[in-house]
Amino acid sequence: MDSAPACDSVRDSGVYLPRTVRTAAKILVVGHFGVGKTTFVGSLSEIRPLRTEETMTQAGAHLDDLAGTAGKTTTTVAMDFGRITINEGLVLYLFGAPGQQRFTRLWLDMTRGALGAVVLADTRRLEQSFDVMGLLEEHDLPYAVAVNHFDDAPSYPEEEIREALDLLPATPLVTCDARDRRSAGRALITLVDHLLHTRTTHREPV
């Protein structure tokens, strides 16, 4: 049988999972437009980040972000994702997507069985994070907030950010630079540490 690679990207080494991997877990990286999701996933992924898109045709009423469009609308929803092999038996996938996709199958696929989420936020527009935080709460998905520090963004004391975002006292808040692997990694570790200490019982998938 002729076994030419199916496409260029699989010519990279390390595309495939180790043979021993038995379990896959997933964590979401969410936040509003342009907040650094793709950058965050790319900093941490061991594979070149991948992207999938889906064209959705649905009633305009379902899309609150497409104001004034009557009847059927077509929109493209996309997510990008990366992979971290945790140990010989376990792999972690990071899925990055905006929160405006709440009615789509892709969003449901993403949240189903997810361990939790990193919410990226930008101090110049904190209020834009409410939408996705509310969405995670609807899905009962625990999260940590990582303020992605943009060069021209003002710095505020942690207490002010907590208050502006109306965070629960237990919700972790960290700052990070999504472009930096260690910094993004610290944000991810903060989330997982939080998940471990708040949700140690088995949870049914959504």
Partner: peptide, 18 residues
């Protein structure tokens, strides 16, 4: 995923691995 291992075990392994 959560149908395979208890979630707490997965989380601990993820934390250690990261």
């Amino acid at each position: 995923p959560s149908a395979q291992l208890p979630e707490a075990q997965i989380l601990q392994e993820v934390l250690d691995g990261l």
